[in-house]
Amino acid sequence: MRHGRRRITWKGTALVVGAVTAGCALVTYLPQDAGVDTPFIVEGEVGETLDLTYAKLTVTEVRVADTLTGLSEAAAAGGTFVVVDATWRATQGQTSFGGAEVTDRQGRRFWPTNQAGCSTSASAQPGYAWRTTYCFDVPRDALAGATVRLARGGQSEDHAGQRRDAVAVIDLGITPSEVDTLWEAEETVSPEAPGYAPASAGGSEG
């Protein structure tokens, strides 16, 4: 075995420092996470049934509401509630659907409320369709072009639970011209409790 009986030279130091710097630069700037983190995004629109491999998902209806009334409480929106009715049909086994988030055109993210009978997650098994209502309080400038992102993985910690997994991103279909009408409408919605969907996952409303 040869021991490192070497003198410290500027050249050697530069080599080591340079190598470490290059390594750090590679780790920092190469998109290495993209390969391990990126979810498989399935895009769709309201009424379309999306195949997420672990479930079939249909967003059946999107409404807005100023007020939500539930069994024990009423919730008033800080902006307006976007009420998303969705139907899950699990296809592999019992599955919990923990992710529900609205994203606006500016990239801002909005999480659902659990007030007034709204759900923030769902759980279902194969063999039936399960209807769930999510309610998101959003400001006026988030309405146009907003999308809802639903998945079995949770969205907290930067969508950590959705890595390398199928995620549905559904355009809520709100055009800029509709925003005024939606914002000014004084709707009150009573979200239905989660339950068996009246129809199969075809998306038709019953």
């Binding site: 007020t67 409480e73 009423a74 008033a76 909005f110 999480w111 409320t113 659990n114 007030q115 309080d137």
Partner: peptide, 11 residues
């Protein structure tokens, strides 16, 4: 609305 608020969304 007198409810406990849990999530404060942006904007």
């Amino acid at each position: 609305d007198g409810t406990s608020i849990r999530i404060l969304n942006p904007g």
